[in-house]
Amino acid sequence: MNPQWLAVRAGGARGGVEFRQSLTNAQDLWNQLFFPIVAVVVMFFLRGSTVPGTNFSIGSMAIPSMLGMTVAFNGLLGVATMLTVEREDGTLLRAKAIPNGMLGYLVSKVVTVSGQTVFGLVIILIPGLLLFHGLAVTAGSLVILVGVSVLGLIATLPIGAIIGSMLSSPRNLGLAMLPIMGLVAISGIFYPITAMPDWLQAVAQVFPIYWLALGMRSALLPENMVAVEIGESWRHLEMIGVLGVWAVIGYFVAPIVLRRMARRESGSSVAARREKAMQRIT
């Protein structure tokens, strides 16, 4: 059998194993559940407030936006976290030491993160549908939801891989976390973006988070809610365009950055990082 194909299949299986491990491990599960639960609870208490100019609940509007944010978080931070942690602990070096191991490794990350994204979406979607009123779920909305999720992962995974390759250690993840949290704040997740100053709206529209949230809102909110969006439109074509540009950038840059990062890995570089990490602990 073709060795590359074999490695892709092994990577797929590896992704499955790691996804299963993340669901059967209290620590990982807590990390995954903490933020969605807090957000859903907060939104639940905000369900009485309405979006200005409508009688639609702010909490209900935030549910689809949070779905978009979940996709972006997993694609950007999920991958970046795994890459930095597994580079430090030597997982990546092991992948490098076996034939086609890096190919299998990357495939496994895509599978693991996709699984975790689906899990994260379900965690929000189920209470969202049960506890919040006004969400319009149709066959069409499910198609859009799946489509936006897939497109979102395609656009954000390579960017996450680039971030993970450039950070020197997991303790620097905050460097990536901070700007992403900033983007969440201005991307109209918890409040309509049209309430923001124009220049902030412009900034938010450069990045994928706003578009992912918009796409999810277009899937789950009633048609008349389009009134509070920019240009009073769901702008599907623009969404595909912006996410597509990010995807293209990612697929050109990520392989270069990943290769450069992987090339530097060796037993002594892992040992040096281990030493550094141990000094911090003790």
Binding site: P3, D89, G90, L93, A97, G267, V270, A271
Partner: peptide, 14 residues
């Protein structure tokens, strides 16, 4: 690479 074996000093991977 398939014909080589490398024994790495593991730490906490896997």
């Amino acid at each position: 690479r398939a014909r080589l074996g490398i024994v790495l000093q593991s730490w906490r991977d896997h």
